[in-house]
Amino acid sequence: MQAATPMRGSSGWQFSPIAWLAEDTLAGIARRRALLGYLFVLPTVLGILIFTAGPVVVSLGLSFFKWNVFQPAEYVGFVNYRRLFNDLRVFISFVNTLKFVLLAVALQIAVSLSIALAVSQRMATWLRYYFRTAFFLPLLMSGAATGVVLGYMLHREFGVVNYYLGLLGIPRIPWLNSSNWVLYTMVLAYVWQNMGFTLVLFIGGLNNIPPEILDAADVDGATGWRRLWHVILPLLSPTMLFALVTGIIGGLQIFDIPYVMTRGGPGDASRTAVMVMYESAFKNMEVGYGSSVAVILFILIMLVTAMQFWLSKRWVFYQ
């Protein structure tokens, strides 16, 4: 930036910041723009410091304390972390979460990519519009409403799903009552709700592929699977990376659907990492312990994301 013109010298006149800003020169305009810049970013910067950046640091700090809100916090070093790594419930919940993420992200990407490819075929406009709307609609439902509705539909005795499966001769499936099934049920419910997001991503990615490239592939005789595998998928890989990263970050934070459907049961079979964190910090009032769970989850998310970007150098292709 330009240095200020005449300023607090020892000479007789006083420096006036208003005159300095209002100066009718290019330097004056630049000063006014800089000031405006600071004023404009102030609410956002301050807000993020107070409500995001600050709290992350505080979370990290709290994880070294024992605190039940009512009594003063007590510094305990790594006790919370030592306890966490020996806590079977925490272990199970993290394993559940990882299993859930793996299955949900894979299924969601496979299903929505297939739908995106199928919908991008030549077909009547209204039909395309209908498909896009139909598959997108569940995204408008809240996780809570999804949990409520699908919870009823998947009820073992009175659920409509088991009724129709029964007509096909399939015995009643304990969707929510069996620890073998419940995690898969969560995956299905979650994919049902979130598929629209990745679908829109993939449709956008497919629309973005230059038609010349597809024509060239056609002339070279690349059709069907070969065209998909060697032409379309590489061109779609940046979209795929985005879908993977957002899908995994979102999946690791899964909470509302299992919370509404089963409260983590039966036993701990559908308990997720965020649920354990919520229970320790806000139900059992073990704020420090809950913070340590949050810190571990945060580190896990960072690691997985960093790893994905690192691995992406090998498979993502930018035009």
Partner: peptide, 10 residues
Amino acid sequence: MIPLQATIIP
């Protein structure tokens, strides 16, 4: 990048 859960307690 920061998940909601990492800030919610503070």
